[in-house]
Amino acid sequence: MSIPAKHPFAFDPTYGYGLREFRALRPPPAPPEFGAFWRDRYREAISIDPEPCLSACEISHADWETHEITYRSTGGFRTSGWLIRPRHGKITRGLVVGHGYGGRGGPEFDIPVENTAILFPCARGISRSAHPSIPPDPARHVLCNITDPKSYVLGGCVDDLWLAVSALTELHPQIEGHIGYSGISFGGGIGALAIPWDPRILRGHLTVPTFGNMPLWLSLPTVGSGNSVQKFLETHEEIRSHLGFYDAAIAATRIDVPMLMAVACFDPAVAPPCQFSVANALPPSPDHETFILDAGHFEYSSMKEQHAALKARVRRFFEKL
């Protein structure tokens, strides 16, 4: 490992942990009715016809057909994003790709998959899915309806992911049984919350996932979205109990499909103990893989080489989809 020695933060982004301590982390206990909460939400979400609508896109690429897409989600929201499809070869797989809390300005063309239709949804309130009822910036977005677990915006973002799978399957029925998910940071946490309940998602890749181990997420200093929740908690202690329903590490204990987890040892935005709590929570399986990064949300000397190695792992991982 080559942990960054210099940084501008007022706290240590390793939180004093080494690999031994990271690997010992486990998720907190689940709240009562955790499974019922999410199973009921999933049933409601997939009862909706997403009615995907494709339109022309100004972004072009030599190897990919590019479309803008909108589809119906829960609560009357229409989710927007991009769909790319290979110009050559048959479509045999589907992949939904979540974004970080910075949003998304377009599709990614360097994801190492072939014969794959890739849907890049923008979570409700963010980027192309902007909505007047939801603040777009991370510090306020993460607080939207936080006092009500049923209407909390993160739950709606999970719904958007499930409906993305529905939209992708409606457009390409042949991919059924060959659908994966990939998400980073915010998208990693939302993915961990979504995957356990959706049997259509058969492989998942999460990079530096957030929302893991809420007792730590709500206490460790951070420059990420957790900071605004910690400040809100000072005058709204009642939210602590129901935030357990949005604990990505607790959700990960329910995941029963192969996962590729990329977690960082140094990260000022998503505390590494929270990331490792998600990765460590997966039920034991030879099909799970963990890739350890020196740092996340921060540039470092070996970043280019590590991300190239991770990309190669992603390629091999999704080839089995």
Rank of each mutant, 00 (worst) to 15 (best):
N145H: 15
W162C: 03
P196Y: 12
L218M: 11
V208K: 02
P209H: 03
D160H: 06
P209R: 02
N145D: 15
G188L: 09
Y152C: 10
E176N: 06
M214V: 09
R200A: 15
L168C: 03
G187E: 04
M214G: 01
L161T: 09
V153R: 01
R203Y: 13
E170C: 05
D198Q: 05
L154E: 04
S166M: 08
I146M: 12
G155S: 04
W162F: 00
F186S: 00
L206P: 00
I195R: 05
M214Y: 03
A164M: 03
G180T: 14
P215D: 13
G212I: 07
A164R: 01
L220A: 00
T169F: 00
P199S: 13
S182K: 14
Y152Q: 10
Q174R: 14
V208L: 03
R200E: 11
H205I: 05
P196V: 11
N213H: 15
Q174N: 13
V153W: 06
D160I: 03
E170G: 09
G189F: 08
F211Q: 04
P221L: 11
L202Y: 07
I146E: 11
T210N: 04
I195E: 03
C157W: 01
L216M: 14
L143C: 05
D198N: 11
I146T: 07
G212Y: 12
G180N: 14
F211I: 04
L154V: 05
S182Y: 11
L216E: 12
Y181P: 09
E170A: 15
S219Q: 12
G191A: 12
E176M: 07
Y181T: 06
T147G: 13
L161G: 00
A167K: 01
G156I: 05
L202E: 15
S219F: 02
G191L: 10
L171Q: 10
H172L: 08
S185V: 02
T210H: 01
C157R: 09
L168R: 04
T169Y: 00
L218R: 06
L220P: 03
H172R: 05
I184A: 10
M214P: 00
S151H: 14
C157K: 04
G183P: 02
P199L: 02
G156T: 09
G156W: 12
D148V: 12
D148Y: 13
L143N: 10
L218S: 06
S185R: 02
N213G: 07
G180M: 14
H205N: 13
D198P: 03
P173Y: 06
L216S: 10
V158N: 05
L154S: 02
H205F: 13
L202W: 08
V153L: 11
V153D: 04
